[in-house]
Design a protein around this nucleic acid. Structure first.
Length: 192
DNA sequence: AAAAGGGACAACCGCTGTGTT
DNA sequence: AAACACAGCGGTTGTCCCTTT
């Protein structure tokens, strides 16, 4: 049995206070990310290291977008989910400024219901079936890179992805070539 | 105006993958 | 090769807030 990541009797739980946020921000600005296990003590926080990591990555990181999802982002999420399933970190890696948790929440609360109830569902189901079928015909059907390439072919033959909205943001990476997510995120944060 | 219901989102939990010893 | 430590991931839960009755 693995030891717990921290002594839960001496850690806070629940919503973060402004003071806690500030301590975490200050510490990471000084020392950078990493070594989450020892961070809480070093930063003077009564929190589990995992909790600190989540708070930073999902909420406090300076490169996060805090506005709502655009139509183009939603379309991309739908396309990627059809390909990759619930691999939220991979999907989020294609959406600069978005986190896996954010994408997951958005999917569960908005897109899934929308797809289940709308006419779009018909197209979505058909699309997914086509992608799966095309991918199965390849020997590396479970290889994400192959799936993405197949997806692009299916979309091209379908006349491309849905019309992008006017407020299409230029920083969304519509090039569905897989790269290592962590590297990708690092590059995008360096751009900002 | 108050209560109930539902949606949205932040946070937690347990498991897995990976690197190190 | 095995055991361990750690970071990361996805599923789930809890809480807040808005809408409806």
């Amino acid at each position: 049995m693995r030891k717990p990541c921290c002594d839960k009797q001496h850690t806070n739980k629940g919503a973060w206070s402004q003071q806690e946020d500030q301590k975490l921000i200050d510490y990471i600005q000084k020392h950078g990310e990493g070594c989450w296990r020892s961070l809480p003590q070093a930063a003077g926080l009564l929190r589990c290291g995992k909790s600190c990591r989540l708070r930073w990555r999902n909420y406090l990181r300076p490169d996060l977008k805090r506005d709502g999802f655009g139509e183009d982002e939603e379309d991309l999420i739908i396309r990627l989910h059809a390909l990759l399933g619930n691999r939220w970190s991979l999907i989020a890696g294609r959406l600069p400024g978005r986190t896996d948790n954010e994408v997951k929440n958005y999917w569960n609360s908005h897109i899934r219901k929308k797809l289940e109830s709308s006419h779009r569902n018909i197209g979505f189901t058909r699309l997914r079936a086509e992608i799966s079928s095309a991918a199965r015909s390849k020997s590396q059907a479970n290889d994400p890179e192959t799936l993405l390439a197949v997806n692009n072919q299916v979309f091209d033959s379908n006349g491309g992805k849905p019309e992008p909205s006017n407020k299409s943001s230029s920083d969304i990476n519509l090039d569905l070539t897989l790269s290592i997510p962590s590297k990708n995120k690092q590059e995008s944060s360096e751009e900002n």
